[in-house]
Nucleic acid binder design. Sequence first.
DNA 1: CACGGCACCTGCCCGC
DNA 2: TGCGGGCAGGTGCCGT
Length: 274
Amino acid sequence: MPELPEVEAVRKSLVELVVGKTIKDVFVGWPKIIKKPLEIEQFQDALQGQTILDINRRGKFLIFVLDDYALVSHLRMEGNYSVRSHDDPEEKHTHIVFKFVDGTELRYRDVRKFGTMHLFTKGMEHTELPLAKLGPEPFAAEFTQNYLKEKLMKTERMIKAVLLDQTIVTGLGNIYVDEVLFRSSIHPERIAKTLSDEEVALLREQAAATLEESIQAGGSSVNTYMNSRGESGTYQERLLVYGKKGEGCKKCGIPLQKIKVAGRGTHFCPECQK
DNA sequence: CACGGCACCTGCCCGC
DNA sequence: TGCGGGCAGGTGCCGT
């Protein structure tokens, strides 16, 4: 479901809802979501008595900072959190529940069960997978023209595949890659190493600008995405190509096309993107 | 090592 | 109406 702007919206809402709460116990209904430790009882024992001190984000990962641990959570396609009273009826597809001492609980729902959670001793999370190999975020100081140019020049892949690669730049997903490529007038199937300096500069600017605009709008709610307070984002109203096959291009008016690139549905303008 | 393809799951939508 | 195929905002692992 979510790319960087949506995860940031979830993070902000969760900070308001659960920071300061202390975990009494944890229900695990689908153990495969817990990737570390693999022994579910260890996961539950470790979390008992821990207080949520803060919630950070790295790329598309949420990081719950606890007294002694860091819980790294990835929502993948459809994961979502909500905070309810323990006696509210449980929604379908609820797989993990963090029960707090105050009678409320943080519920993790995930229709497709693709989401993941990794529990680390506090401070260890950044040097181990899944966070260790992530590249810079588009607005990070390290995401420079030279950095991106160098990465693009040493691969034979198509530009769309490279922008989806979280070790090159983290935060973009299928929606925002299509948007960024349209805004940069670059065809998604261009071989990355054929991009000019000007095109690389444009990509870098548009990646940062697109994500920043979407964060301001609370992310995009294309299907059912919502933050943890149940609120939708509004950036879907400003998308230029994603999900708009057959509609007129905002720049030139000819119908937008949808093709498959790097295994993903890809929206673009055959006139504006060369 | 780099890359493409597939697996992981469920639900929905479309065409027959 | 029912069924099969294809699709979905992501990533890790596998084989070539």
